[in-house]
């Protein structure tokens, strides 16, 4: 098996996520039936997405493994590949290889209270795990589930259609906030770390998983510790430039870790002993 060969896949559906149109969600289906069945992944893993003629980029899989038959990627327009994807139309053929990386430590989370803290497009990897846990087959394995999600403005909130579903569920403690509201916004206004302090989840038998802009993660981790969470109880994902996705090309090297192979999910405890080079 050549690990560098992408499988062909069709973009079946493109959903515009934000008002600024800088985030889109792509529903992707492998052309080959066998690949479709064989592509098994866990929440937190990523795939290398190829736009042929452009390049490849590592993108976290935002769909949950409980969603069968297709993958979803939510992508912010940033570099060459993501721009090409944003210019794509439904029906375009792209390449996908993977899944790569570790995943969220799901087994360790069973029987625990789970707190998700996301900011902006950082919700994408968390969403995979949220939907996995909320799935009827898995919901019983986890105790209370709390979601704190924020974005710069109401228009920047992603997965709006799904946020509503989460909000309605009785078995989810859901908090949404924006840095700055608009005329129509009736909800909470404030930064995610501040909302976290306001909600003040208990660290008892809990795991907090956070993903978002670096500055948000920094303050979320500070605040979590203030609330009594130990470094082992805090989980986050790292972003690095990647090329091969399989620990060979050397690019995503931080200390003795390769983010593509040993990450992208790390506990804060693991991060503490890694060089601050991310």
């Amino acid at each position: 098996m050549n690990p560098y060969l992408p499988h062909l896949a069709e973009i079946r559906k493109i959903i515009r996520e934000t008002d600024a149109n800088d985030v889109k969600t792509f529903e992707v289906v492998f052309l080959d039936e066998a690949v479709r069945k064989g592509f098994r992944y866990k929440p937190g893993q990523f795939a290398q997405v190829s736009v042929f003629g452009v390049e490849e980029a590592p993108i976290s899989i935002t769909s949950s493994p409980t969603q069968k038959g297709y993958l979803e990627f939510s992508i912010k327009r940033m570099g060459t590949v993501t721009t090409a994807l944003h210019n794509a139309t439904e029906g375009m053929i792209i390449g996908v290889r993977g899944p790569y990386g570790n995943s969220f430590p799901i087994e360790d989370m069973e029987g625990k209270n789970i707190i998700f803290i996301g900011g902006g497009i950082g919700l994408a990897p968390l969403r995979s795990l949220i939907n996995f846990m909320l799935h009827e087959e898995n919901r019983d394995k986890f105790e209370d589930i709390m979601i704190i999600y924020g974005a710069r403005s109401p228009g920047d909130l992603v997965f709006k259609w799904e946020l509503k579903k989460w909000e309605k569920r009785e078995d989810v403690n859901y908090f949404v906030t924006v840095d700055k509201g608009d005329g129509k916004w009736r909800g909470r206004v404030g930064f995610v770390p501040a909302v976290l302090m306001e909600v003040a989840p208990s660290p008892k038998n809990a795991v907090a998983i956070t993903c978002g802009p670096p500055i948000m993660i920094k303050f979320v981790i500070q605040n979590l510790q203030e609330l009594g969470f130990t470094p082992e109880q805090i989980v986050t994902t790292l972003e690095m430039r990647m090329k091969c996705g399989i620990g060979k090309c050397g690019r995503c090297n931080i200390g003795s870790k390769y983010v593509c192979r040993d990450g992208p999910v790390f506990t804060y405890k693991e991060l503490q002993v890694m060089p601050k080079e991310y």
Binding site: Y4, G53, V54, E55, K243, G250
Partner: peptide
Amino acid sequence: CHCFDITDETMDTSGER
């Protein structure tokens, strides 16, 4: 040393990685 980059090259309708 073994670090490498990956890139696509295109010519007319053909592409190569």
